[in-house]
């Protein structure tokens, strides 16, 4: 089973994503509430894919993405963005994010995005 790490400072979003993936063939190995925790959890848990919020306290999703990519160039990170964050999404792409998903999104879109990123 593939492993997923959820990064978001809003518990609501973490639970949303977790619920959406409930019946999917994917194991949620961890949840991080900011970029700093995300980076250390990534190193420890080595997930196959990460959903990464952009605006977070302590360390933003972009910074965390960069650190994760520096640690593991193969890391698959899906940015979770919302309208109005075009500039940051662009930076995330440059920094090596696999793709992004725009809030609000539906369950199916999340499934599709994750399976595509995982190449299933």
């Amino acid at each position: 089973m593939k492993k997923l790490l959820i990064v978001d400072d809003a518990a609501f979003m973490r639970v949303s994503i977790r619920n959406m993936l409930q019946n999917q063939d994917i194991e949620i190995v961890g949840e991080a509430a900011n970029g700093l925790i995300a980076v250390s959890m990534y190193k420890e848990l080595r997930p196959d894919v990460v959903t990464m919020d952009i605006t977070m306290p302590e360390m933003s999703g972009i910074e965390a993405l960069k650190l994760i990519k520096a640690f593991d160039p193969q890391a698959k990170v899906i940015m979770v963005s919302s309208m109005g964050q075009e500039g940051m999404v662009k930076q995330a792409i440059i920094s090596g994010a696999k793709t992004f998903i725009v809030k609000p999104f539906k369950e199916e879109l999340l499934h599709k995005t994750i399976s595509k990123v995982l190449g299933v």
Binding site: L36, V39, S40, K43, E63, A70, S95, G96
Partner: peptide, 26 residues
């Protein structure tokens, strides 16, 4: 120049101590 950016991230690298404390906080 996409190649440059990941390399520059060592700039804001966090110290080992910090990492450890965060990993236990995780």
């Amino acid at each position: 120049d996409s190649a440059k950016i990941p390399a520059s991230s060592s700039r804001e690298g966090i110290t080992n101590d910090q990492k450890e404390s965060y990993s236990s906080a995780s």
